[in-house]
Computed example of a mutant assay.
Amino acid sequence: MTNSDRSNKTVGVLVCTADRPQMLVDCLRSLISQDLPVGWRLEIAVVENDATPKSKDAVAELASGTTVPIHYVQEPRRGIPFARNKALEQALAYGFDIVTLIDDDEQAQPGWLVAHIDTLLRDGISVSYGAVTKTYECERPRWFPPDTPSDMVAGMELPRASTNNVAFLSDLIRPPHNLKFNPVFLHGYEDLDFFENAHAKGFRIVWNPQAVVDEYVPRNRLTAERMLAFTRASATAHVQVGILRQGYARTFVKFGLKGLRRLISSILLLSVVAPLYLAGVTGLERHYYKNRMRLTRAIGNLRGIFLRSASYYNQIDGH
């Protein structure tokens, strides 16, 4: 079936959640208020990634007051790939024609679903990747990496996407393709890997800046400890990708050398900058944290080489 044939169909929004019932409800409210193109209906599937149903009652209460079907299921095995794969199972079980993913700490802006659906109705496009703005609970630290506007233009083709704001044709997860999230990536990169595999199979991914969600960033995610933990996990995940795709030997050489360079240079620079910064010398904050980030990437790379995981998502930020 071509994209233009898709009418009188269902768009399903998949939301994975863990221990954030209030933020989840805000997310779901933004979804049920979405407009839809003529001939389309909306359903929502919530996957709670927890052995304890902490959000079940909140979802049931919200579902009782809307005509939009909201399905709820638990995935007790902790890990983002497990939750996302359970969500894909729901999409297949309910026969969604377009599958959309959004994070539980985000809210869809008006026109979000229309923008995604309109893009996917164009022939040859299989994945619509949308934009994310951020609302911070408190002022960000001065050293924090800045939010830089995307320089991509609407319709630009991309080699990958992430799951915080994306929609795709269900063809990706149906036979013969049967794409799933790789459970190896317990600490990040599982979404990029999924869409890189989709791209390799010939599915076209395009940038869609008209489909916007807003991410709420809580105060505790703006600490140095959390930023460094994220950086370490990301560096480890990149090594995991290399091992899977290029083999251990090539990855060991590539990231071993990179990790050692980062380790040596950051330690040398921190040996000069850290004492001065900690002594109160102004103007060194960015240099101090830049090199702490570099050191953390080195540690993440080396942990990945020695097959050690680097957890970030075990701690839940938000409410």
Score class of each variant (00 low, 15 high):
Pro37Asn: 09
Thr231Gln: 13
Phe252Ala: 13
Asn178Glu: 11
Thr236Phe: 05
Lys9Cys: 11
Gly111Tyr: 03
Val11Asp: 12
Phe168Met: 02
Gln240Lys: 12
Cys27Phe: 01
Ile32His: 01
Val239Tyr: 05
Leu263Gly: 07
Ala279Ser: 07
Glu48Ala: 02
Phe194Pro: 10
Ala198Asp: 08
Thr67Ala: 14
Pro146Asp: 08
Val239Thr: 01
Phe185Thr: 06
Gln74Phe: 08
Ser128Asp: 06
Arg226Gln: 13
Arg142Ser: 12
Lys258Val: 00
Thr282Tyr: 09
Thr251Asp: 05
Ala115Met: 03
Leu172Asp: 01
Val38Lys: 15
Trp207Glu: 00
Asp5Glu: 15
Asp103Leu: 01
Met293Asn: 02
Gly79His: 11
Pro37Cys: 06
Pro275Asn: 12
Asp214Asn: 14
Glu89Met: 10
Arg140Ala: 10
Thr119Trp: 08
Ala154Ser: 13
Arg77Gly: 04
Ser128Val: 13
Ile117Ser: 10
Leu158Thr: 02
Thr66Tyr: 12
Thr100Leu: 08
Gln90Glu: 11
Tyr312Leu: 09
Leu268Ile: 07
Ser7Ala: 14
Pro275Gly: 11
Asp97Val: 00
Thr148Leu: 14
His177Asp: 07
Pro53Lys: 05
Arg294Ser: 13
Arg250Ala: 15
Gly79Met: 10
Gly188Thr: 04
Phe185Ser: 03
Glu75Thr: 00
Met293Glu: 02
Arg303Val: 00
Ala224Gln: 14
Pro183Ile: 09
Arg204Pro: 10
Val217Leu: 10
Asp103Gln: 07
Leu14Ser: 02
Ile44Met: 06
Tyr313Lys: 00
Asp105Val: 09
Gly188Phe: 06
Ser266Gly: 09
Val15Ala: 03
Leu179Met: 04
Ser271Leu: 07
Glu106Ala: 08
Val68Asp: 03
Arg84Val: 04
Ile299Val: 14
Ala108Cys: 11
Leu158Trp: 09
Tyr288Gln: 05
Val166Pro: 13
Gly304Ala: 14
Thr52Arg: 07
Asp191Arg: 04
Val253Cys: 03
Ala87Ser: 13
Ile44Asp: 01
Gly124Tyr: 15
Gly188Ile: 02
Ala200Lys: 15
Leu192Arg: 10
Val132Phe: 00
Val153Asn: 04
Thr223Arg: 12
Leu302Trp: 07
Gly65Asp: 15
Asn8Trp: 14
Asn165Leu: 00
Gly65Thr: 14
Ile299Pro: 06
Arg226Phe: 00
Tyr72Ala: 07
Val38Gly: 01
Gly247Met: 03
Asp317Phe: 15
Tyr312Asn: 09
Ser64Asn: 12
Tyr289Asn: 01
Leu263Ile: 01
Glu139Leu: 12
Ala274Ser: 14
Arg174Met: 13
Glu106Asn: 08
Arg204Leu: 09
Arg297Ile: 03
Ser33Arg: 11
Phe185Ile: 06
Ile243Pro: 13
Leu257Asn: 09
Val47Glu: 06
Leu172Pro: 02
Cys16Lys: 04
Thr135Ile: 01
Lys86Thr: 15
Ala91Arg: 06
Asn314Trp: 08
Ala63Lys: 02
Asn164Lys: 00
Ile299Thr: 11
Glu61Ile: 03
Tyr216Gly: 05
Pro21Thr: 01
Met152Asp: 06
Thr67Arg: 12
Thr133Phe: 00
Glu190Met: 09
Cys27Ser: 07
Thr119His: 09
Asp123Gln: 07
Val114Asp: 06
Gln22His: 15
Gly256Trp: 14
Leu270Pro: 04
Ala51Cys: 06
Leu36Ala: 10
Asp104Val: 06
Ser311Gln: 11
Arg286Cys: 00
Ala235Met: 04
Asn165Lys: 02
Asn208Ala: 08
Arg232Trp: 05
